[in-house]
Each structure stands twice: as structure tokens, then as C-alpha cells.
Deep mutational scan, measured.
Amino acid sequence: HMTFVALYDYVASGETDLSFKKGERLQIVNNTEGDWALAHSLTTGRTGYIPSNYVAPSD
């Protein structure tokens, strides 16, 4: 899985969403939902949907 870094803070709007903080590292599990991606946080160990425009690929 590619690793991504959060560009902004995001507060989950539902139970299936994943909250994260700017700078948090995430792995995209499934990116077939258009503007949303299923992601796993390497920081918190949690998995949920995130807005895909809130993250960018990290080196």
C-alpha cells in the first residue's frame, strides 16, 4: 500500500469515517469510492473513510 500524509485535520462526520490530524500518516486500502478513500491510519491504527483530497502521497 502507498503511504499518504494528511494535509489538514479532518473530523469524522459518521461512524464509517476516519478522523485524523494534519501530518498523520495513512495507507489507502481502497480508492474506488471517487472523492472518498478507505484508509488505515499508521498513527492510530484505525481504519475508515477519508476525503481523498485531504491527503497527498508521502515519500
Results as ranks from 00 to 15, higher is better:
His1Pro: 12
His1Leu: 12
His1Glu: 13
His1Ser: 11
Met2Asn: 11
Met2Leu: 12
Met2Tyr: 12
Met2Thr: 11
Met2Lys: 13
Met2Gly: 10
Met2Ile: 13
Met2Pro: 13
Thr3Lys: 05
Thr3Leu: 13
Thr3Val: 15
Thr3Ile: 15
Phe4Met: 11
Phe4Thr: 07
Phe4Ser: 05
Phe4Asn: 03
Val5Trp: 05
Val5Ala: 03
Val5Arg: 03
Val5Pro: 02
Val5Ile: 14
Val5Glu: 07
Val5Tyr: 08
Val5Gly: 01
Val5Ser: 03
Ala6Asn: 01
Ala6Gln: 00
Ala6Cys: 09
Ala6Tyr: 01
Ala6Met: 07
Ala6Leu: 05
Ala6Arg: 00
Ala6Val: 12
Ala6Gly: 05
Leu7Asn: 05
Leu7Glu: 07
Leu7Trp: 06
Leu7Ser: 05
Leu7Ile: 09
Tyr8Trp: 12
Tyr8Ala: 09
Tyr8Asn: 07
Tyr8Met: 10
Tyr8Lys: 07
Tyr8Thr: 07
Tyr8Glu: 09
Tyr8Arg: 08
Tyr8Ser: 07
Asp9Tyr: 02
Asp9Met: 02
Asp9Phe: 03
Asp9Trp: 02
Asp9Ala: 04
Asp9Thr: 06
Tyr10Val: 03
Tyr10Gly: 01
Tyr10Leu: 03
Tyr10Cys: 03
Val11Gln: 11
Val11Cys: 11
Val11Asp: 10
Ala12Glu: 04
Ala12Thr: 04
Ala12Phe: 03
Ala12Tyr: 02
Ala12Cys: 05
Ala12Gln: 05
Ala12His: 04
Ser13Trp: 09
Ser13Leu: 12
Ser13Met: 13
Ser13Lys: 13
Ser13Ile: 14
Ser13Gln: 14
Ser13Asp: 08
Gly14Ala: 11
Gly14Gln: 10
Gly14Met: 09
Glu15Phe: 08
Glu15Trp: 08
Glu15Thr: 11
Glu15Gly: 08
Glu15Ile: 10
Glu15Ala: 11
Thr16Phe: 15
Thr16Lys: 14
Thr16Val: 08
Thr16Tyr: 15
Asp17Glu: 15
Asp17Pro: 02
Asp17Leu: 09
Asp17His: 13
Asp17Asn: 09
Asp17Val: 07
Asp17Thr: 07
Leu18Glu: 03
Leu18His: 03
Leu18Thr: 05
Leu18Arg: 02
Leu18Cys: 04
Leu18Asp: 01
Leu18Gln: 03
Ser19Phe: 05
Ser19Gln: 05
Ser19Gly: 09
Ser19Ile: 06
Ser19Lys: 04
Ser19Pro: 05
Ser19Asn: 05
Phe20His: 02
Phe20Gln: 00
Phe20Ser: 00
Phe20Ile: 11
Phe20Thr: 02
Phe20Pro: 00
Phe20Asp: 00
Phe20Lys: 00
Phe20Arg: 15
Phe20Val: 09
Phe20Glu: 00
Lys21Trp: 04
Lys21Ser: 10
Lys21Val: 09
Lys21Met: 09
Lys21Asp: 05
Lys21Ile: 08
Lys22Tyr: 03
Lys22Pro: 02
Lys22Ile: 06
Lys22Asp: 01
Lys22Asn: 02
Lys22Glu: 05
Lys22Phe: 04
Gly23Ile: 00
Gly23Tyr: 04
Gly23Met: 02
Gly23Trp: 03
Gly23His: 03
Gly23Cys: 06
Gly23Asn: 05
Glu24Leu: 00
Glu24Trp: 01
Glu24Gln: 02
Glu24Asn: 01
Arg25Trp: 13
Arg25Glu: 09
Arg25Cys: 14
Arg25Ala: 08
Arg25Phe: 14
Arg25Lys: 13
Leu26Ile: 10
Leu26Ala: 00
Leu26Arg: 00
Leu26Ser: 00
Leu26Pro: 00
Leu26Glu: 00
Leu26Asp: 00
Gln27Gly: 04
Gln27Val: 15
Gln27Glu: 10
Gln27Arg: 14
Gln27Cys: 15
Gln27His: 13
Gln27Asp: 05
Ile28Gly: 01
Ile28Thr: 02
Ile28Met: 08
Ile28Trp: 04
Ile28Tyr: 05
Ile28Asn: 00
Ile28Glu: 00
Ile28Lys: 03
Val29Ile: 15
Val29Glu: 08
Val29Arg: 08
Val29Pro: 06
Val29Tyr: 11
Val29His: 15
Asn30Lys: 12
Asn30His: 13
Asn30Thr: 14
Asn30Leu: 13
Asn30Phe: 14
Asn30Val: 11
Asn30Cys: 15
Asn30Ile: 11
Asn31Met: 14
Asn31Tyr: 15
Asn31Trp: 15
Asn31His: 14
Thr32Val: 14
Thr32Gly: 12
Thr32Ile: 14
Thr32Tyr: 13
Thr32His: 11
Thr32Asn: 10
Glu33Arg: 10
Glu33Pro: 10
Glu33Met: 13
Glu33Gly: 14
Glu33Val: 12
Glu33Ser: 13
Glu33Thr: 13
Glu33Phe: 14
Gly34Gln: 07
Gly34Phe: 06
Gly34Ile: 05
Gly34Thr: 07
Asp35Gln: 11
Asp35Leu: 09
Asp35Tyr: 12
Asp35Pro: 12
Asp35Asn: 10
Asp35Glu: 12
Asp35Trp: 08
Trp36Ile: 05
Trp36Asn: 03
Trp36Met: 08
Trp36Val: 06
Trp36Lys: 07
Ala37Lys: 13
Ala37Phe: 15
Ala37Ile: 15
Ala37Leu: 15
Ala37Arg: 09
Ala37Asn: 06
Ala37Gln: 11
Ala37Met: 15
Leu38Met: 09
Leu38Asn: 02
Leu38Arg: 04
Leu38Ile: 07
Leu38Cys: 14
Ala39Trp: 03
Ala39Glu: 00
Ala39Lys: 00
Ala39Val: 13
Ala39His: 01
Ala39Cys: 02
Ala39Phe: 04
His40Ser: 07
His40Thr: 15
His40Val: 15
His40Glu: 08
His40Gly: 02
His40Leu: 14
Ser41Arg: 01
Ser41Leu: 02
Ser41Met: 02
Ser41Thr: 01
Ser41Asp: 03
Ser41Ile: 02
Ser41Tyr: 00
Leu42Pro: 07
Leu42Ala: 05
Leu42Asp: 04
Leu42Gln: 06
Leu42Arg: 04
Thr43Phe: 05
Thr43Ile: 09
Thr43Trp: 06
Thr43Pro: 02
Thr43Ala: 10
Thr43Tyr: 05
Thr43Arg: 08
Thr43Cys: 12
Thr43Gln: 08
Thr44Val: 01
Thr44Tyr: 01
Thr44Met: 02
Thr44Trp: 00
Thr44Lys: 02
Thr44His: 02
Thr44Arg: 02
Gly45Met: 05
Gly45Asp: 05
Gly45Tyr: 04
Gly45Ile: 01
Arg46Pro: 00
Arg46Ala: 08
Arg46Met: 11
Arg46Gln: 10
Arg46His: 08
Thr47Asn: 06
Thr47Lys: 07
Thr47Gln: 07
Thr47Tyr: 09
Thr47Asp: 06
Thr47Ile: 10
Thr47Val: 09
Thr47Gly: 05
Thr47Ala: 06
Gly48Lys: 01
Gly48Leu: 02
Gly48Tyr: 02
Gly48Asp: 01
Gly48Thr: 01
Gly48Phe: 04
Gly48Met: 02
Gly48Trp: 01
Gly48Cys: 04
Gly48Ile: 01
Gly48Pro: 00
Tyr49Pro: 02
Tyr49Gly: 01
Tyr49Ile: 07
Tyr49Phe: 11
Tyr49Leu: 10
Tyr49Thr: 06
Tyr49Lys: 07
Tyr49Arg: 09
Tyr49His: 06
Ile50Gln: 00
Ile50Gly: 00
Ile50Leu: 03
Ile50Met: 03
Ile50Asn: 00
Pro51Gly: 01
Pro51Cys: 04
Pro51Met: 03
Ser52Gln: 09
Ser52Tyr: 15
Ser52Lys: 15
Ser52Glu: 04
Ser52Cys: 15
Asn53Gly: 13
Asn53Asp: 10
Asn53Cys: 15
Asn53Val: 09
Asn53Phe: 10
Asn53Thr: 09
Tyr54Met: 13
Tyr54Arg: 06
Tyr54Trp: 08
Tyr54Asp: 02
Tyr54Lys: 06
Val55His: 04
Val55Met: 07
Val55Ser: 04
Val55Ile: 13
Val55Gly: 05
Val55Phe: 11
Ala56Trp: 10
Ala56Lys: 10
Ala56His: 08
Ala56Met: 11
Ala56Tyr: 11
Ala56Asn: 08
Ala56Phe: 09
Ala56Ile: 14
Pro57Met: 11
Pro57Phe: 12
Pro57Trp: 12
Pro57Asp: 07
Pro57His: 09
Ser58Asp: 14
Ser58Ile: 15
Ser58Gly: 09
Ser58Ala: 14
Ser58Met: 15
Asp59Phe: 13
Asp59Lys: 10
Asp59Glu: 13
Asp59Pro: 14
Asp59Ser: 11
Asp59Thr: 12
Asp59Ile: 12
Asp59Ala: 12
Asp59Met: 13
